[in-house]
Amino acid sequence: MQEDIAALTGERPGPGTLYGAIRRLEEQRLIEQMPEQDRRKPYRLTDLGARALQAELVRIRTVASTGLRRLATA
């Protein structure tokens, strides 16, 4: 997960940051842990998490579209 985040953001999160985020996402029931696989602890989005992600991606797209439109007319 740290490598995926680093590839997307250019920075690798520290373990405290990552595990804190995972804990908060679990508390909000946005993700849930799956059975361990070779000492790895995989997670999956819950239905609630998928809906929250969808809403956030729509929000980000709206912000980006507005920004790009305004830049084009500047």
Rank of each mutant, 00 (worst) to 15 (best):
Q2T: 09
D4T: 12
D4R: 14
I5V: 15
A6Y: 04
A6P: 07
A7G: 04
L8S: 03
L8P: 00
L8C: 11
G10N: 06
E11G: 02
E11H: 05
E11C: 04
P13G: 08
G14T: 08
P15N: 02
P15K: 13
P15A: 09
G16D: 11
G16E: 10
T17G: 07
T17S: 10
T17Q: 13
T17C: 04
L18V: 10
L18K: 03
L18N: 10
Y19E: 06
Y19T: 12
Y19D: 04
Y19H: 08
G20P: 01
G20A: 06
A21R: 05
I22V: 14
R23Q: 10
R23D: 08
R23L: 03
L25W: 06
L25S: 07
E26L: 12
E26M: 08
E26H: 10
E26P: 00
E27C: 03
E27W: 09
E27F: 05
Q28F: 05
R29D: 13
I31T: 02
I31D: 01
Q33W: 00
Q33N: 05
M34N: 02
P35K: 09
P35F: 05
E36C: 01
E36H: 07
Q37F: 02
Q37T: 11
D38M: 08
D38I: 01
R39C: 01
R39V: 07
R39P: 00
K41R: 14
K41H: 12
Y43E: 00
R44S: 10
L45C: 04
T46P: 08
T46M: 07
D47Y: 07
L48W: 04
L48F: 08
G49H: 05
A50C: 06
A50G: 02
R51P: 03
R51F: 00
A52G: 02
A52Q: 06
A52F: 09
L53Y: 13
A55I: 11
A55C: 03
A55R: 15
E56S: 14
E56P: 04
E56R: 12
E56Y: 13
E56T: 09
L57T: 05
L57P: 03
V58D: 13
V58N: 13
V58R: 11
I60A: 15
R61V: 00
T62K: 15
T62A: 15
V63R: 15
V63A: 14
V63C: 05
A64F: 10
A64E: 15
S65K: 13
T66K: 14
G67S: 13
G67D: 11
L68H: 15
L68E: 11
L68Q: 15
R69P: 00
R69A: 15
R69H: 11
R70E: 15
T73V: 13
A74L: 14
A74W: 05
